[in-house]
Amino acid sequence: MIAPVAQALDVERTYRMQGVPIHALRGVTLDVGAGEFLALVGPSGSGKSTLLHLLGGVDKPDVGRVMAGGTDLSSLNDQKLTRHRLEHVGLVFQRFHLLPMLTATENVEIPLAEIGLRRAERRQRSRELLERVGLGDRMKHRPGELSGGQRQRVAIARALANRPSLLLADEPTGELDRETSKGILELFESLAGSGTAIVVATHDLKLAAAAGRQLKMVDGRLNGLELS
């Protein structure tokens, strides 16, 4: 049996907001397999983003374990966890979080530079990625010169730069129109088809319906309800 790309085992996570404990996750268990396209749906504050952060090693659970490739992410120090995210995880945010003063190519180069690739190699790979997300003619444009959908494509290209096994997208179509969202959905389907595990937290039912598996989160729990 192939080990899951990411695995949450009975995880719990509680935040404190002005001294009041907020139970973001309560005993969540989840496996994500290679090439799987999984959608997490649920109302705001249900714990979708928190679960994505735990799966990606951005945050650590208070209780339970998050495993990636047989490694317990909680056991890694900050340096190793950062390296894990760099090499194995791609993250896409609702607000893109691109550096506004860099071009599309340069934004995609950031994780490649961090991993230590030479400039020529970085440049070549970032161009390939931008071609792949359909932005071959927008490489020298800065985020301010791109539409919302184009910016999100740059963010996806950046997330794919180091060929991650797991792509996590938090409301990737939240600020996009229907037509642009459709383009992003097709891109995810194509990526899942090439073996990348994708977990999307979304309110967009169309996007969720296109995923291979849909899970609903309510009040920090996965109820396992299949939407499709």
Binding site: H53, G56, V58, D78, Q79, T82, R83, H84, R85, L86, E87, V89, G90, L91, F93, H97, I110, P111, E114, I115, R158, A159, N162
Partner: peptide
């Protein structure tokens, strides 16, 4: 966001 995508504290 940069930290989340794997950019180190040092960088």
């Amino acid at each position: 966001a940069l930290r989340a995508i794997g950019v180190s504290r040092r960088s």
